[in-house]
């Protein structure tokens, strides 16, 4: 099959009709992924998208790559197997807040701690969409839904806090409608060697519309969002006049000027070996704080599948390539005439 290079975004679209609700944030993410694929000239036949169950998990059907739409919560485990069998493949896991942090929470934790070299896109819309509107593990307390008519009692999880708690080697966040920034983050994830976890705030315009209004509304978002830049002080606000300072081990919002200079602010360090700063950032939440966007953490760690292959290679070097007859004849044997 002849392919004309370079590939364009449309070359990464499959022939399947996209069937998310009109206005769903997923459309934007799909478009940005296809653009980033073209930007990095991803080889389609070496790329695999793996998903679980939920609206987001329809994603693989729309990509002209290999795809596996699996079962609820299990995409990280399936993707781990794919990567162990063939580490040459570029593997992307697409999941949602219910799929990835409720039913599949265990697999997510273990995928990240092992540092399997694949990308995880968490479409966080803070609601169950496919089952028509129940509260999710990221829904705020008190959220009124079909399954919580008097308000949800569950304290929500912070996916980024959990990812950092597992010492994931790459953790980032962006928003569906902020397309250029999203592309930038997706490309950073694609370039990372190891588990790259990206939380994408995604609007479910049917069951949880405007859940992230504070982070997307053009009028107010600059005061509610902090863009992280490695090596730079944490400054935010429409007027770039606010910053984050450490008071003991607690971050606080301060106004610049009046005795506070950028030198007093926290300098972002995404490469810090210890995840302490990244974790602290993950605790900053609207409305008390601006919510950090960008790369929280990006460190180098050996990948799981590489270590697996290295072990196979080193044992093979030590013992020699496996020989069936040697295996059959090992141990105590005896002859019967």
């Amino acid at each position: 099959m002849t392919v004309s290079l370079p590939l364009k975004a449309k070359d990464y679209k499959s022939d399947q009709e996209v069937r998310w609700c009109p206005g769903c944030g997923d459309y934007s993410i799909l478009a940005q992924i296809q653009k980033v694929m073209a930007e990095i000239q991803a080889t389609r036949h070496n790329t695999v998208f793996v998903s679980g169950i939920g609206c987001s998990s329809r994603f693989p059907y729309y990509m002209n790559t290999y795809g596996f739409h699996s079962i609820h919560g299990r995409a990280p485990a399936i993707a781990t197997g794919v990567k162990c069998a063939n580490p040459e493949l570029d593997v992307w896991v697409v999941t949602g807040d219910g799929d990835g942090f409720s039913i599949g929470g265990n697999h997510m934790i273990h995928l990240l701690r092992r540092n399997v070299n694949l990308k995880i896109l968490l479409f966080n819309n803070r609601i169950y969409g496919l089952t028509k509107g129940q509260y999710s593990p990221t829904s705020p307390v008190g959220k009124k839904t079909k399954s919580s008519p008097y308000g949800s009692l569950d304290a929500p999880v912070s996916p980024i806090s959990i990812a950092i708690g597992t010492e994931a080697s790459f953790v980032a966040r962006c928003v569906d409608v902020d397309v250029r920034y999203q592309q930038h983050i997706l490309k950073r994830a694609a370039d990372h060697r190891g588990s790259a976890f990206v939380e994408i705030y995604q609007d479910c315009n049917v069951y949880n519309h405007k859940a992230f209004d504070y982070a997307t509304d053009r009028q107010t978002k600059d005061d509610h969002v902090l863009y992280l830049e490695h090596g730079k002080p944490m400054i935010f606000g429409k007027e770039r006049n606010k910053g984050i300072r450490l008071n003991g081990i607690t971050p606080e919002v301060v106004e610049l000027g009046a005795g506070v200079s950028p030198d007093d602010l926290i300098i972002h360090d995404e490469r810090s070996a210890e995840p302490t700063l990244a974790y602290l950032l993950s605790r900053m939440r609207y409305p008390e704080f601006p919510e950090p966007m960008g790369v929280y953490r990006a460190i180098e760690r050996p990948t799981y599948e590489q270590q697996l292959l290295d072990q196979v290679a080193s044992v093979t070097e030590k013992l020699g390539p496996g020989d069936l007859d040697e295996m059959f004849n090992a141990g105590d044997t005896w002859d019967v005439e």
């Binding site: 485990a77 781990t80 063939n86 273990h110």
Partner: peptide
């Protein structure tokens, strides 16, 4: 692969088969 649980054990095996 000593998986985190039984489900991950079978799912990783399915993923491995998918990949060859």
């Amino acid at each position: 692969f000593q998986a985190e649980d039984e489900i991950a054990a079978v799912c990783s095996a399915i993923g491995a088969s998918f990949a060859g």
